[in-house]
């Protein structure tokens, strides 16, 4: 299902709030369709976010399954969240970090960066950036996802991750510096030249 385009919606407009509330109410009334609805709406999004918390598909898969079981099991006591997506992301994050050993979480990239460099088409540039992002440490990937893909504000990210503004900003700064180094001067410049021709 191709519902999310590249310009992904932000937390608030990811789904209409009224739909979310309607289905949340049905979930509390033990309607299994409601669980299916949320799964349908958010599964891919949770994969993307999960992979930015830990780049390991099997772990994200386990955590997403666990998340939906937890929601179902505690449906009677859950109060309706302001944003279902935000709630799911925060819960997924907790589950992943709980399940993952610390050393795994903090290990640095193993990716060989040698093959990232040359880019002479927009598509290659696009792929090169994806690759570079995925080779960053997990924490940096997560913040890039939240800030630049999900377009959250620093306040929202603080709320989700519990990290302070200064740390968030420094981590993003560090991440961006690595990105820039990986996407070498030459590569980006050549593309810029092409881009400027069209201005």
């Amino acid at each position: 299902m191709d519902r999310e385009s590249r310009n992904a919606p932000s937390v608030s407009d990811a789904e209409s709030a009224s739909d979310g509330h309607y289905w949340w109410q049905r979930l509390r009334e033990s309607d299994a369709d409601a669980l299916a609805y949320f799964y349908d709406q958010h599964a891919d999004w949770l994969l993307r976010y999960g992979l930015s918390v830990i780049y390991e598909r099997a772990i994200v898969k386990d955590a997403v399954q666990e998340l939906f079981l937890v929601i179902w099991n505690s449906r009677h006591t859950l109060s309706a969240p302001k944003s279902v997506r935000f709630y799911l992301m925060a819960s997924l994050r907790r589950l992943i970090l709980k399940n993952v050993r610390t050393d795994l979480r903090l290990c640095d990239p193993v990716e060989d960066m040698a093959d990232i460099v040359t880019t002479d088409s927009a598509e290659e540039m696009h792929q090169a950036v994806q690759k570079a992002v995925r080779s960053l440490p997990a924490r940096q990937q997560e913040l890039i996802f939240l800030k630049f893909y999900q377009k959250m504000t620093y306040e929202q990210i603080e709320e989700l991750t519990g990290l302070k503004y200064q740390i968030l900003r420094n981590t993003i700064h560090r991440a961006m510096k690595s990105l820039r180094t990986m996407l070498t001067q030459h590569a980006v410049t050549s593309l810029t030249a092409v881009f400027l021709l069209f201005l």
Binding site: R48, Y49, M125, V133, F145, F148, Y149
Partner: peptide, 11 residues
């Protein structure tokens, strides 16, 4: 350019 090319497209 870097910003515009940041994308997460796994499904």
């Amino acid at each position: 350019h870097i910003l515009e090319n940041i994308d997460f497209s796994e499904t």
